[in-house]
Design a protein around this nucleic acid. Sequence first.
DNA 1: GAGTGGTCTAGACCACCTC
DNA 2: AGGTGGTCTAGACCACTCT
Lengths: 228, 228
Amino acid sequence: MIGGWEDIRAEVLRRISTQEWPAGVLIPTEEALAQEFGCARATVSRALRELAQAGVVERRRKAGTRVAVLPVRRATLEIPVIRQEVQARGQTHGFQLLRAERLAPPVPVASRLGLAAQDPLWYLETLHLADGQPFVFETRWLNPAILPAVMPDFTALSVNEWLVKNVSYASGDIAFSAAGATAREAEVLGVAAGAALFITERSTWRAEAAITFVRLAHAPGYRVQTVV
Amino acid sequence: MIGGWEDIRAEVLRRISTQEWPAGVLIPTEEALAQEFGCARATVSRALRELAQAGVVERRRKAGTRVAVLPVRRATLEIPVIRQEVQARGQTHGFQLLRAERLAPPVPVASRLGLAAQDPLWYLETLHLADGQPFVFETRWLNPAILPAVMPDFTALSVNEWLVKNVSYASGDIAFSAAGATAREAEVLGVAAGAALFITERSTWRAEAAITFVRLAHAPGYRVQTVV
DNA sequence: GAGTGGTCTAGACCACCTC
DNA sequence: AGGTGGTCTAGACCACTCT
């Protein structure tokens, strides 16, 4: 029995994965499928929209819906706040603010934030701990323009969470890479210099204004995982 | 002027980011918003559903819609086929099948695929090239049960693409991490042993049956990037 | 029990694109 | 020019869960 849009999505996916509808072919129109399944067109539309979002089919007006030839699968990653991430592992979170000073940013950072290199930004180094052990070393450049007149006390509340609560829902981009530990990272994380570290870099804007650029150097063993 | 569901999503996002609706508070019901915006409830519903998917609000029947307190942002990653990824960089893709043999998998691989360790699997090593330079070193364990009676010619079509075309739309999980190059990886990729490499690991199933486990060791400089 | 989101329907109009 | 997906409407019923 075919019921709601999830059943329709499953049925369409079945026909595709069994090659009943091979890669590249046009599948029936929404209206035709609605008749076949005995439901409204909107229901079929919802199912096909989800499949298009997942990269399984490609849709264009007038051209119809095709099974994707080279399926660019899309996976969803969850980006939690660090404290949440540590606590989700059943560990206690702590952090130390190691440095906080005004500095002119290096050129790559300034350009990535779209600021002139001579504008001094706040530079903050924070070490996050899981059960007292180094978990991630955070180096952050922060646009002073977005801070209130009185500097918040970042030794009590991590910069990370202050931003989440006060400058929330900005847009930005995230990049993941691997790099050998720099001397500073090795010292702070307690690993050998050159050890392979997982690096997360994130730039954040709100309405064209640069907010922050942060680099997270994760302690060895860190993984980002997701389901497709 | 407030028009379609995208405008409504933008307006709600604006009220949240300006703290007009601070974190944790209940926002008006779909019906109330529909009246305010002068549209049907379904239109508001669509906008709020998208915001919930992005992790900006949390919705529960009867409880209503709340601004997320700790916004677990969700980012979408695109997972292309390697050939596509190389070509998107404007480079030409090539590959070499370095090894192909039946082997009993190591325990971690067997357990991750839910197979007994003594069952021999196909073990394949492939080096992918971008403009002739090492791009990613792929080591793959493949369940022979999913292969046809005659072994496909993996020197002509990469295993990667054969799977995409013949065992498409399976489910699985992906993990990203960093690791120092093993002796074999260093040799094949032409880097120093211990160099920091970006690692992608992926397990794939179809309907409870394990298909493949693949480990991709990317040449230095590789990044995974996305927009939030 | 009652209020909220989740979904479905039948119909309509529109935007876009291929033919 | 016509067919297709994209969206909106007005209404309805249902599922969940808080009180």
